[in-house]
Computed example of a mutant assay.
Amino acid sequence: MTDHNIALKILFFSQTLIGVMGNSFLLGLYIITFFAGPRLRTIDMILTHLAFVNNLVLLSKGIPQTMAAFELNNFLDDIGCKSVFYLHRVSRGLSLCTTSLLSGFQALTISSGNSRWAEIKTRVQKYTVPFCLFCWVLHLGTNGSILVYMKGPKGYENITKIQDFGFCSTLFNPSFTTSISAFIISLPDATCLILMIWASGSMVLVLHRHRQRVQYIHNSRLFSRPSLEARATQSILMLVSIFVYFYSFNSVLTVYVQFAKTNHLLLNVSAFLAACFPACSPFVLIFNDSQVSKYCLTIWEKIKFPSLY
């Protein structure tokens, strides 16, 4: 067993385990708070959905990749490969869609001093759940082609134009139809990515203007303790930056690997990058969002002093 294989096993296993634990903690915290704690904000509902789909991304990619690193390449049949890849692509698209919704909603929140933006924010709050359901339907539909082309590791044994993922394989035949299919699949992702970048730019601009307006205040205490909205906005900007960084690198690698000869090293790097945001995002919120600490404290007080509630 080479050092390379040992490192892969440790890397994928650690990334999956830590990421699932972090997302499960946030998911459990929000669920408990919903039933027993203070009223959840709309943004907390979005974060609950994000933690759920990020767990799906990690489980659908991390577990098969970890097992492949342990050289268990035949543990999935055709149906298993179709299910795992379909779930991963759907959950990855939902993660992008939810992060886009999160950044857009926060941009509206810090701009809601304007009556027009406040009205739009109210409408977004009303349609948050239907929008998430729409994202599910959209990605379940647009990724349906995976159920046709994905096979088990031996599914395309006698065909040369295949892409081998170690534990699954798919037929890759560049054509006009394939290009149209790829365009349809990537269109919702591109739209969400553009919306996310626009919302992030808007948040940066609003925060910059706010900082300029308060520069005449010389009380250092005001600058050492940013507002809750500013801290929440900074956390979401950090989340978006991490997402765009890893998503961009992963997309470039994915396109390269599809058109070049199968390279297992690049496939492993691409798989690692695809799971970086789902693994990192819960800890960004845990350590930077003061509302998470508030929910933890409220639940702890209810457990320790139940008679007060």
Rank of each mutant, 00 (worst) to 15 (best):
N5K: 10
A7D: 08
A7W: 06
L8C: 08
K9C: 09
I10W: 05
F12A: 04
Q15D: 12
T16V: 10
I18Y: 06
I18L: 08
N23S: 01
S24E: 11
S24K: 11
S24H: 12
S24C: 08
G28A: 02
I32Q: 14
T33C: 04
G37N: 04
P38K: 01
L40M: 05
R41L: 14
I43S: 09
I46G: 02
H49R: 11
F52A: 11
N54P: 02
N55I: 08
V57C: 11
L59A: 05
L59M: 02
S60H: 00
G62P: 01
G62H: 03
Q65V: 09
M67Y: 08
A69C: 08
A69K: 05
L72N: 07
L72G: 03
N74Y: 10
C81K: 04
Y86W: 10
H88W: 15
R92V: 12
R92G: 13
S95L: 01
C97Y: 10
T98N: 02
T99I: 06
T99Q: 04
L101A: 10
S111L: 11
S115R: 10
W117M: 14
V124Q: 02
Q125G: 09
K126A: 13
K126R: 15
P130V: 01
F131N: 06
C135H: 05
W136R: 02
W136S: 04
L138K: 06
G141K: 11
G141Y: 09
T142W: 05
S145Q: 08
I146E: 05
I146G: 09
K151M: 08
K151S: 05
G152C: 01
G155I: 02
E157S: 03
D164V: 05
D164R: 00
S169K: 03
F172G: 00
N173M: 12
S175Q: 04
T177F: 13
F183N: 06
F183Y: 02
L187C: 10
A190Q: 00
I194E: 01
M196Q: 12
V204M: 14
L205E: 12
L205P: 00
R209Q: 13
R209T: 08
V214M: 12
Q215P: 01
N219T: 05
N219E: 13
R221C: 12
S224T: 06
S227H: 05
E229W: 04
A230Q: 14
A232E: 13
S235T: 09
I242G: 07
Y247K: 13
S248H: 04
N250W: 07
N250D: 14
S251C: 07
Y256V: 11
Q258P: 02
A260N: 07
L267S: 00
C276N: 00
A279N: 04
S281G: 06
S281E: 09
P282W: 12
P282S: 07
I286S: 06
N288P: 07
S290F: 13
V292L: 04
S293V: 05
K294T: 14
Y295C: 03
Y295T: 00
E301M: 14
E301D: 08
K302H: 11
I303D: 00
I303W: 13
I303P: 01
K304Y: 12
F305H: 15
L308C: 10
